[in-house]
Simulated assay, not measured.
Amino acid sequence: MKKEDCFYLGKIVKKYSFKGELLAKLDTDEPELYDNLDAIFMDLRGNLVPFFIESSQLHKSDLLRLKLEDVDTEADADALIKSELYLPLDLLPKLEGNKFYFHEVTGFKIKDINFGEVGIIKAINDSTAQALFEIDRDGIEILIPMNDEFIVKVDRKNKTIEVNTPNGLIDLYLSE
């Protein structure tokens, strides 16, 4: 399994018991969707390694308590702390309407109701306080905040996202 065929689920943050149990912080709004997994992939030194899950349960709302097969001691558990967790993309729940996964919209066209076609989404920047569409318009980078109020329609069939940005936002990037 390669990383590009998977999505980031979260990270092992600490040990839970002396029997090798671990707590994972999940990067999701719906941790309950991942409560009954059979297996998970862990990034160990750049390789995705599968681990079978003996048991799991939600712990304090956003943590998942995991008991992994063949992880039976504190030393086994210590070796896995800070490891990133991944699952195959086909396990992602399908989103409807204007909700989307960041990886899903890379390559989509952005069209603004007033401006017209803006360009192609080359990436999502989520390292800022507000996630941003990074759009390429013939070599010029345009950043549009991923604000629910701006997103009018996500058209998966035609790979377009229609937005309604404040007047002048796009022009800021085009006037030199």
Rank of each mutant, 00 (worst) to 15 (best):
E32I: 07
E32L: 06
E32F: 10
L33I: 14
L37D: 03
D38Y: 12
A39G: 13
I40E: 08
M42P: 02
M42S: 14
M42L: 13
D43T: 04
N47C: 15
N47Y: 15
L48R: 04
F51Q: 11
F52N: 15
F52I: 08
H59D: 13
D62G: 10
L64V: 10
R65E: 11
L66S: 03
K67G: 02
E69T: 14
D70C: 02
D70I: 03
A77Q: 01
A79M: 14
A79H: 07
I81W: 07
K82L: 14
E84I: 05
E84T: 12
Y86F: 13
D90R: 04
L91A: 08
P93A: 04
L95W: 03
E96D: 15
F100M: 02
F100I: 02
F102M: 05
T106V: 11
F108H: 14
F108V: 08
K109H: 05
I110M: 00
D112Y: 01
N114Y: 11
F115Y: 08
F115R: 05
G116I: 06
E117P: 01
I121Q: 01
K122D: 08
A123W: 09
A123R: 12
D126V: 09
T128L: 11
A131W: 05
L132T: 01
L132Q: 07
F133W: 02
E134T: 06
D136E: 07
R137V: 00
D138R: 14
D138G: 12
D138V: 11
G139A: 12
I140R: 02
I140K: 02
E141H: 09
I142P: 00
L143A: 01
F150V: 11
